[in-house]
């Protein structure tokens, strides 16, 4: 499936790495700037997609294995649900922000555990962004990996 010239092959991995870093930066600024989990995850996936399109499936330096996709997808979904349930059991509402505690119903110890270490008082929002970002990253990447795989199968059968 690989159809890139030498110039494309030389420049794609550096651009992919920089795209992934930009995606991570967008995720980590999601609670106070435009962007967040979905946007950052899509940017990270675009790095993987660029790499797969240029180098081809099975030949790409940045390629995610089946187990890796499975684990990250599960961690993203489970993390989001677990944070929601912590809010439900400690604060009384699903996805209650236990790190910030607007309603003053959470013990200080629990509040300190879930407080994100930065100057803003964002609580669990950055963690939710990270989980959503991981899920979107592997979700979009797996779609392209599947399409590239199907194309390979069709080419082989013809």
């Amino acid at each position: 499936m690989s159809q890139g010239s030498m110039i494309l092959k030389l420049i794609s991995l550096p651009i992919s790495i920089i795209l992934i870093c930009l995606g991570i930066m967008t995720i980590l600024g999601g609670h106070i700037t435009p962007g967040g989990g979905f946007q950052g995850g899509a940017m990270m996936a675009s790095g993987i997609i660029l790499s797969i399109l240029v180098y081809g499936l099975g030949n790409s330096p940045l390629e995610l294995s089946h187990t890796y996709i499975e684990v990250l997808e599960s961690v993203g979904a489970l993390g989001f649900v677990i944070f929601g349930l912590i809010g439900l059991f400690v604060g009384g509402f699903y996805l209650y922000n236990v790190g910030t505690d607007v309603l003053n119903i959470v013990p200080a110890a629990i509040q300190n555990v879930f407080h994100y270490p930065d100057v803003t008082n964002a609580g669990i929002i950055p963690y939710l962004n990270i989980f959503v970002g991981l899920k979107v990253f592997v979700g979009l990447s797996s779609i392209v990996i599947a399409f590239a795989g199907f194309k390979k199968i069709v080419e082989e059968s013809e």
Partner: peptide
Amino acid sequence: QIKLGVSDTHF
């Protein structure tokens, strides 16, 4: 997940 030496370019 980065693995080198799989494509014909050498980093």
